[in-house]
Design a protein around this nucleic acid. Sequence first.
DNA 1: TTTAGCACTCATATATTGACAATGCTAACA
DNA 2: TGTTAGCATTGTCAATATATGAGTGCTAAA
Lengths: 330, 330
Amino acid sequence: MLNDRQTKLLKIIVEDYVKTARPVSSKAICDILNCSSATIRNEMSYLEETGLLEKTHISSGRVPSEKGYRYYVDHILEPRELNGEDMLRLQTIVNNSSLMLDDYISKSMEIVSEMTNLTAIVLGKSSKDNCVSKVEVVPINEHNLIAIVITDKGHVEHKNLTIKENVSMNDIKQTVDLINKMIIGTQLNEVGKILEYEVKPIIARYVKQHEVLYNAFYTAFTDFAKESVTMTGRKNMLMQPEFNNADKIRDIISKFEDKEIVDKIEENDNGINIYIGSETEFDDDVTIVKMKYEANGEEGTIALVGPKRMEYDKVVALLEYIKENMKEGK
Amino acid sequence: MLNDRQTKLLKIIVEDYVKTARPVSSKAICDILNCSSATIRNEMSYLEETGLLEKTHISSGRVPSEKGYRYYVDHILEPRELNGEDMLRLQTIVNNSSLMLDDYISKSMEIVSEMTNLTAIVLGKSSKDNCVSKVEVVPINEHNLIAIVITDKGHVEHKNLTIKENVSMNDIKQTVDLINKMIIGTQLNEVGKILEYEVKPIIARYVKQHEVLYNAFYTAFTDFAKESVTMTGRKNMLMQPEFNNADKIRDIISKFEDKEIVDKIEENDNGINIYIGSETEFDDDVTIVKMKYEANGEEGTIALVGPKRMEYDKVVALLEYIKENMKEGK
DNA sequence: TTTAGCACTCATATATTGACAATGCTAACA
DNA sequence: TGTTAGCATTGTCAATATATGAGTGCTAAA
């Protein structure tokens, strides 16, 4: 455990380094803590022994280590009060009552990304537990149909179906009616089973080209499971000095293009979670701040990605603000 | 105009430089052209006077200038025959008959991006000239509806509508029926007018809360106009050595994030168009190869973006192959 | 426990050097 | 007239040296 002065010191070093991106020297701190640089150096070397600080080289100033950031986040950090300007920008979105939840979230995150210079990620609301509330089929021409599935939480997915053989409009209608009858109210991830074991046997009896039709719908439904990921402000974060060499940037970009890695962000518990450096499985210089939300029975995850050296207090405050204003029903 | 040997020389230099990314020396060419390096140097210096070649420094080998690439593309380039492996990979997509046009294109471009190490862009089929073929509204709960618009070419867009005041289900149904009656067959970019001048007056008479409903639908339709842009393989192109400094990469990434710049690619005539360096309004080191297509009455644009130093012959061959196989109706 | 002072270390910037890869030019040659 | 050999010239690249300054660790004294 750190004593009062050590805690203050760590806080100062983290926050100064976050601001300037330069190792913090003992001299720079004297004034703030009212003691000489030598005293600071003594304390610094203790914090370094504890593993909370690091030097970039033997005679450099100190930089927070990963453990240092972790300690800061766990024990020192308190959400910063939002400044008036930021508050105002977000407020206009909160107040726009014609926005539905999804739009409220993506718009807010766009702004947050800009305000923090971080990359904002909105992970597709996991629609697995959405229930089918309507299936619709619209013919485009002889061989093409559009299947539309709507869930009870307001998500819509559509898929174009191509049917090679001639299938009568009547058969199609019959199939759709049947599907509607059998699977309304079913959770999306259950639909596959029901189609296979309950719907298929029946249409096999009544519908002539049932194989063709069945396959078309089956692929349509299974495709709906895929989740969407949207990102904004990739460039913002890459402007940070920790990403000032080409290979580093390329690496980060590659990671972003690989959806699997982005998806991994989602596997964790509720509230705001902060993953620092190696904890991210992404990059040792990167921190990911993640928040699950639940509103109107719909849940999702938003995340901010940026250098370890980020304004944790501001980020947390912003996310909490978004969550706060989401609860009030949209 | 270049004589035969000069033409050959330019071709060799372009293709060698494309392959190796290193300035081409006179010595390296002797063998191919059966003459001494001095002779090559004489020819080279002529091509440099003409502005087709450049040096990176006074004693370096030669590199094609922008004008050199332009000359190569205009007068020398002939589409390379696709190699068996590439052909095969694309063929599997061509043969997958359950794919509709859009999917065929995006899947093909994904593969092309991988094969060429370029960034592939599929620009949203300009749906302006699509006609509305159906409008549907599905209620989610008291205050939220989903409006779905389907066009004759099989595009589907949907939008969640929030309605603050209490509106009766009956009013909604009436409005939707009316909209359906009035605007089916109308081009998307005409819908606005018809809504304003023909639909609005009528629902104003028959529907109680017409303002609320009308506004909801109006914003829904106007939003549909927005076009989609998808990109794959950004990272591929950034691996190229011309983008090996951080600022350059940052610059390119920023450009990609700015939709306006990407959209600009679209404003040009049919067939395959190649924009080199400064012609791109993107970056002097970048070439954009763009192809408009039209199939089944639907048109769109695909583009490949990469360094000027790209395999033009391969790129052209691939795009032509895609276009060829698209015509056969999907 | 704090502090002043000093030796020490390392990053950063700049200059120096030699090896090398090309070129341009000139003069000779076919 | 076109081609070529030879050589001086030029700039890149990598390795090495040099100076400067910022910051530390340690010690001894307050």
